[in-house]
Simulated assay, not measured.
Amino acid sequence: MIIVVVVQAVWSLSKKAIKDGPTLLADMVAIAAYFIRANEILALMLLGLAVMLVKNWQIRHSSLHSILMLVSGMLAQAGSTAATGAVVSWVSVFLFFLKIGSVLYGSGYVLLAFLQQELVERNQWLTSQQLLDAVAIGQITPGPVFTTATFIGYLLAGNAGALAGTIGIFLPAFVLVGAVYPWVLRLRQSSWASNFLDGLNAVSLGLMAGITYTLGRAALVDGLTLVVAILSAIAVFRFKISSVWLVLAGGAIGLASHLL
């Protein structure tokens, strides 16, 4: 069910994020960067800047291709190796989500790309299945998808970790909104800032597409899960059923299949 919900989010974001050639190419490079395990923060910044420069200077297609290929090469060299033997404390949880909350941009589902690469692949604090469980909990509880951080914090460091994760991921938003608000009107009128945000949107979309594929492999493991996913897709895209009901129904089906 969660995979279908994320696919819906990717589809909705794509309608706004892919505006032209530069944003489409940035999206494709972002997907490639995800699969080579490049640093996602660096991907956001570099590709966002690349789109901004391309769109403002109106360079030709050949130059555009060269710049984005150069950026993708830099991303390939920037991938981090996984940490081993890390001890997870509530302080570590707070600092991790503070970092994520400070740089995360786009739909809340972009959070999944950060969590998959940082928690599952690099630090190996969680498995992909645990990440899917956390997203499911975040989906059925009130509030934004970011409440996933609460559940992950609990898995890693108990009640203190849950509190630390929640504060860590939301705190930067309050600080940044207060700091940036006086400059909002000027930023909206700036073509440089506008095009930079276009680039960030496109890269966010690419990261979401990559994590959807990765989590799909972890979730679709047999005939039952495949059928549930197909029925969920019909319910979401054809009948516009709320994702909350879908997640609850998916949980009920999974429980019933286990008991039977």
Rank of each mutant, 00 (worst) to 15 (best):
N39K: 12
V91A: 12
A193P: 05
I241N: 07
V4H: 02
Q124F: 04
V29Q: 12
F94L: 15
A164K: 06
L259Q: 09
G138H: 01
R37F: 15
N195D: 11
F97P: 03
H258L: 12
F97L: 03
S190M: 09
L47D: 05
L44F: 12
L24R: 12
D133Q: 05
L115Q: 06
A82F: 08
A219L: 06
D222R: 14
I18W: 08
P144I: 07
V236P: 01
W125R: 00
T141Y: 01
G254L: 01
A173L: 09
A17W: 08
A113I: 00
L156T: 07
L226I: 15
I41T: 15
F151P: 04
Q129F: 04
G165D: 04
M1I: 03
V4L: 10
T81C: 02
N39F: 02
G199E: 04
G85H: 14
A235K: 04
R37T: 13
I211Q: 13
V6F: 00
S102N: 08
S72F: 14
G251C: 12
M28G: 08
V54G: 07
S66R: 14
F239L: 11
F35Y: 13
W245I: 06
S204A: 11
V135N: 02
K55R: 14
D222N: 15
L215V: 08
G216C: 10
N123K: 05
E40F: 11
Q116M: 00
T23A: 11
I2Y: 03
F114V: 00
V6P: 02
G138K: 04
A157S: 13
K240I: 05
Q139K: 07
